[in-house]
Simulated scan of single mutants.
Amino acid sequence: MKQISRMIATASIAALACTGFSTAALALDVDAAKDLVEQNNCKQCHALRKDKDGPSFMKTAEKYKGKPNAVDEIVKHLTSGKKVKLADGSEENHKIVKTMPPNDMAQIKNLAEYVLSIQPK
């Protein structure tokens, strides 16, 4: 009986340890996200840690830090084409992120997770 209890306890501890790791954090593919940034010319308006016409990825990460819907909010922004205000005060529709194959939500979510991962140096 003690051996079975010990096995159950060990399995429970292992399961709890696994839940400490976010599947999103384990799944982040930085190289794929950087490629998508390049393909969509995101750096024309955004930089990693410095504002340009649009906010830096770091500023966006700070804005959404700790919010449970952060990835969904960024995905919505990247896929909706909503109006954004530029640094000079003008407005334009944000470009919709293009993926190959088209509308690949896994790639877009990976990009959102990448943006959220940018930290100050």
Rank of each mutant, 00 (worst) to 15 (best):
A24N: 12
K50A: 14
D29A: 03
L36N: 01
S22M: 08
V75A: 08
V97R: 01
S22T: 08
A70V: 14
S56I: 12
K83T: 15
N93L: 02
I96V: 15
S90E: 07
D51N: 14
D31S: 13
K34H: 07
G66L: 06
R49V: 12
L26N: 10
V97D: 03
K67C: 03
G81D: 05
R49E: 13
E62F: 02
I74P: 00
T23Q: 07
K95A: 10
K67D: 13
V75D: 03
K82F: 04
E73Y: 07
A87T: 10
L28K: 03
K34Y: 04
H94L: 13
E62I: 13
F57N: 02
I96H: 03
E91Q: 15
P68W: 12
L78R: 01
L36W: 01
M58D: 00
G66F: 10
D72S: 15
T23W: 01
T79W: 09
L28Y: 02
G20Q: 10
C45P: 08
N69V: 05
E62H: 01
G81F: 07
K82M: 11
L28G: 01
A24Y: 04
L28Q: 05
E62Y: 02
V37T: 05
F21C: 11
G66P: 07
K76N: 10
M58K: 09
R49M: 08
G54C: 11
A33P: 04
D51R: 09
A25F: 04
K52Y: 06
D72F: 09
E38L: 08
K59S: 15
K43F: 09
D88M: 12
F57W: 12
H94Y: 14
E73N: 14
N69D: 15
V84T: 10
